[in-house]
């Protein structure tokens, strides 16, 4: 455990130096998510301001609550996409040779990929997360059962995101087609996970496809807790599903690391060594 904590600290410093190596990072951390949020809000407004919206989607009848709905989507997407980005950066360590050094060390591989994702996540999302919290407070749109639900919301974003990051890291460090995976996890992820639409608007096949993405489950919990005032009891099913999915992602990450490293040690290919 102590060693794991030290790896977390080490990765946090590494990510901090990488992410904040340039001051332009504020663009990807805050400006891009805000611009995307503005665009999706204005694009959906013509649909929300229609007669009978209160029956079809009560939340959208209030423009501020529609904005809050989309803001939770943007926040969740920022969490999960920042891990896609950090996994993408992790693949560059293969070219610089530092990946080999990670594998030369006795550090537990799973701890390294989890710590790497966690470090990237914290560095990348804090600004937009603070902004979102400030926005929610300012517009007073949150309806929360009790204060403890904020902790539930935070964990429902953090835990699945870290598991997701660990899986992506494990897959990408052994993959040569990282660029393609990166493209595949950008737009399809927000589309299938219900970032910009409520899940009832998605057709069944798309909901099924989206259910394997942890972002989908995270958003259900976050929106249920923040916008609909649901408590832990009401969200128990969703929370359990999210926990199971996170565990599956982590176990898959472990398997991917074992298989990937064994294969790399056998073939010397995969560009790793």
């Amino acid at each position: 455990m102590r060693h794991a904590a030290r790896i977390f600290r080490a990765e946090a410093l590494k990510q901090h130096r990488r992410v904040f190596g340039s001051k332009l990072v504020v663009f990807s951390m805050l400006i891009w998510p805000l611009l995307t949020l503005a665009q999706s809000y204005y694009t959906l407004r013509p649909l929300a301001a229609t007669p009978g919206i209160a029956e079809r989607w009560p939340l959208a009848a209030d423009p501020e609550r529609l904005l809050a709905f989309l803001a939770t989507g943007a926040l969740g997407f920022t969490f999960f996409f920042s891990l896609v980005q950090s996994a993408w950066h992790f693949t560059f360590e293969r070219q610089t040779g530092t990946l080999e050094l990670l594998f030369l060390s006795p550090a537990n591989r799973l701890v390294v990929v989890v710590a790497n994702g966690f470090g990237a996540l914290v560095q990348n999302v804090w600004l937009f997360a603070c902004f979102a919290v400030a926005g929610f407070t300012l517009f007073d749109v949150a309806r929360v059962a009790h204060l403890g639900m904020y902790a539930v919301v935070f964990l429902a974003l953090l835990v699945p995101a870290v598991a997701w990051g660990a899986l992506l890291n494990s897959l990408l460090i052994f993959s040569r087609d990282a660029a393609f995976l990166y493209t595949l996890l950008d737009d399809p992820m927000w589309f299938a996970a219900g970032v910009r639409l409520p899940t009832f608007a998605l057709p069944g096949w798309l909901r099924a496809a989206g259910s394997v993405l942890p972002l989908t489950g995270s958003l259900v919990v976050v929106r249920g807790a923040l916008l609909d005032g649901r408590g832990v009891g009401e969200l128990a099913g969703e929370l359990a599903a999210l926990a199971v999915l996170s565990a599956v992602l982590l176990l898959t990450a472990v398997a991917a690391l074992r298989l990937g490293e064994a294969r790399a040690r056998r073939t010397g290919q995969l560009g790793l060594f």
């Binding site: 060693h3 030290r6 410093l13 130096r17 190596g21 040779g97 530092t98 030369l104 060390s105």
Partner: peptide, 29 residues
């Protein structure tokens, strides 16, 4: 054990020299 291969950089460019050594020290516990 440890391995030193010449000719390649194999350290993190964004970190300082001291930070690089500290980082690897953590990995080696």
């Amino acid at each position: 054990i440890n391995l030193i291969a010449g000719g390649e950089r194999m350290v993190y460019a964004r970190m300082t020299g001291r930070e690089n050594l500290w980082y690897f020290g953590q990995l080696y516990d």
